[in-house]
Amino acid sequence: MSNKLQKILVIVGPTSSGKTILSIKLAKDFNGEVISADSRQVYKGMDIGTGKVTKKEMQGIKHYLLDVVSPKTEYNAAKFVKAAEKAIKQIQKKGKLPIICGGTMFWIDALLFGLPETVKPDPQLRKKLEKLSAEKLFIKLKKIDPTRAKTIDKNNKRRLIRALEIVLKTGQPVPKPLKKLKYDALKIGVKRDNQTLKKLIHNRLIARMRQGMVAEVKKLHKHGVSWQKLDDFGLEYRWLSRYLRGLITKQEMLERLELEINHYAKRQMTWLKKDKEIVWENDYKKIENLVKKWY
Rank of each mutant, 00 (worst) to 15 (best):
Q41I: 03
Q41L: 05
Q41R: 09
Q41W: 10
V42L: 01
Y43E: 02
Y43R: 04
K44F: 13
K44T: 13
K44L: 12
K44A: 09
G45T: 12
G45I: 15
G45L: 13
M46N: 01
M46H: 03
D47R: 13
G49W: 11
T50Y: 12
T50H: 11
G51F: 13
G51W: 10
G51K: 13
K52V: 04
K52L: 10
V53T: 06
V53K: 06
V53D: 01
T54E: 08
T54I: 13
K55C: 13
K55E: 15
K55N: 15
K55H: 14
K55S: 15
K55L: 15
K56Y: 11
K56W: 07
K56T: 12
K56M: 08
E57C: 04
E57T: 01
E57Q: 09
E57G: 08
M58W: 02
M58A: 15
M58H: 09
M58V: 10
Q59I: 01
Q59T: 01
Q59H: 09
Q59C: 09
Q59K: 11
G60A: 10
G60P: 05
I61Q: 08
K62E: 08
H63T: 03
H63A: 06
H63N: 04
H63C: 07
H63Y: 05
Y64W: 03
L65Y: 02
L66C: 03
L66R: 07
L66E: 00
D67E: 06
V68I: 03
V68G: 03
V68D: 02
V68R: 03
V68W: 00
S70P: 13
S70Q: 06
S70I: 09
S70H: 12
P71A: 04
K72W: 01
K72H: 00
T73F: 06
T73C: 03
T73I: 04
T73A: 02
E74D: 13
E74K: 06
E74A: 05
N76P: 12
N76E: 12
N76D: 14
N76K: 10
A77P: 04
A77C: 10
A77N: 07
A77W: 05
A77S: 11
A78T: 07
K79G: 15
K79L: 14
K79D: 15
F80M: 08
V81K: 07
V81H: 05
V81D: 09
V81C: 11
K82Q: 12
A84V: 00
A84C: 03
A84Y: 01
A84R: 00
E85N: 12
E85K: 09
K86M: 01
K86L: 00
K86H: 07
A87E: 02
A87Q: 04
A87W: 02
I88A: 04
I88S: 07
K89S: 11
K89Y: 13
Q90T: 11
Q90M: 10
I91W: 00
I91S: 06
I91R: 02
Q92E: 14
Q92V: 11
Q92W: 12
K93W: 14
K93T: 12
K93H: 15
K93Y: 15
G95D: 11
K96S: 12
K96Q: 15
K96F: 15
K96V: 13
L97D: 05
P98H: 04
P98G: 11
P98A: 09
P98Y: 01
I99K: 03
I99M: 02
I99Y: 01
I100C: 00
I100F: 00
I100W: 00
C101E: 00
C101F: 09
G102V: 07
G102W: 11
G103N: 05
G103Q: 06
G103R: 03
